[in-house]
Structure formats: structure tokens, C-alpha cells
């Protein structure tokens, strides 16, 4: 199974990722999901989320998830990009694509990776209000 992982402070180039898709002739499904920061966190209006990450462990845990995904045998490729640092409302914090032969497998695998990520990958988010936004986010991506 082909895999691509990026944990980045840069905006996610969704168009570039879609344009860069490769799939073999036996593949009939490419499912991708983009997680976008909402303008509310609970009852509070926010302007962004600050994501922090324990990067070496996050990369390791993502690779373990991909290993488990590969064992399912039905996925040709997975590509995942997680943005960290300050992500404004309306922008994507997560992009994932799964390619497989059939849509049921692709949808299920995409959902599975996201569900598992939310259990084991050490990434955290902190709401940023309009008042908070006047304070710079932590420039250290590993904190």
C-alpha cells in the first residue's frame, strides 16, 4: 500500500493534492475528506484553532495506523495531511484520501483512519477567540 503523510504548519493545498493523485487501472474509488475549522467551539465563537503536536510520536502512530490499514488488503494508497499551528476558521486542518477498488472500502477506510487518529495520534487543539487572536501563536510546532 502506498502512503503519504505530512504534518505541516502550511495551509493544505487540496487542489494540488487532488491533482497529484495516482491510481492503478484496477482502482475504482478515490475518497477524500477535508476537515475544516468551524467558527464555533461548543457555544463559543472562535476565529481559529491552535493545533499542537508531539510530532515524532504522531508520525509513528500514523504509520502504525497505515500498517493496520495495509493489512486489510483492499486499499491501494492513503495520503494524509494534518496541519498544525494556528488554523483559521474556514481552512482545512485535515485532508485524507483513500484509494481502493470499490467505494465501500474507500469510505470505510477513510472513516476508520480518522476515528483511530482521534484515539491515538498526539495532536491537540485549543480554541482561539477574537481576543486571543491578537496574541501570536506558539512558533514552536513541537509544542
Amino acid at each position: 500500500m502506498k502512503r503519504f503523510l505530512s504534518i505541516t504548519r502550511d495551509p493544505i493545498d487540496e487542489a494540488g493534492l487532488v491533482a497529484g493523485r495516482t491510481l492503478s487501472s484496477g482502482m475504482g474509488a478515490a475518497v477524500y475528506f477535508s476537515g475544516v475549522v468551524r467558527g464555533q467551539e461548543g457555544a463559543d465563537a472562535i476565529v481559529a484553532l491552535d493545533y499542537s503536536c508531539f510530532i515524532p510520536m504522531a508520525e509513528h502512530q500514523f504509520q502504525r495506523l497505515f500498517d493496520r490499514l495495509a493489512q486489510r488488503g483492499s486499499v491501494e494508497s492513503v495520503r494524509l495531511v494534518h496541519r498544525i499551528g494556528r488554523v483559521p476558521v474556514g481552512e482545512s486542518s485535515l485532508w485524507i484520501e483513500v484509494v481502493s477498488a470499490h467505494r465501500a472500502e474507500a469510505f470505510a477506510a477513510c472513516q476508520w483512519v480518522i476515528d483511530e487518529m482521534k484515539q491515538v495520534v498526539p495532536i491537540w487543539k485549543k480554541p482561539v477567540t477574537a481576543v486571543d487572536a491578537s496574541i501570536p501563536s506558539n512558533p514552536n510546532p513541537a509544542s
Binding site: G35, Y51, F54, M57, A58, H82, S93, L94, I114, M117, K118, Q119, V120, V121, P122, I123, W124, K125
Partner: peptide, 10 residues
């Protein structure tokens, strides 16, 4: 050793 709260990616 690292200690942290429940994760919240995505």
C-alpha cells in the same frame, strides 16, 4: 516519558 491529555486531532 511523555504525559498528555486525550488527543484531539482532526
Amino acid at each position: 516519558v511523555s504525559l498528555f491529555p486525550p488527543v484531539q486531532g482532526g
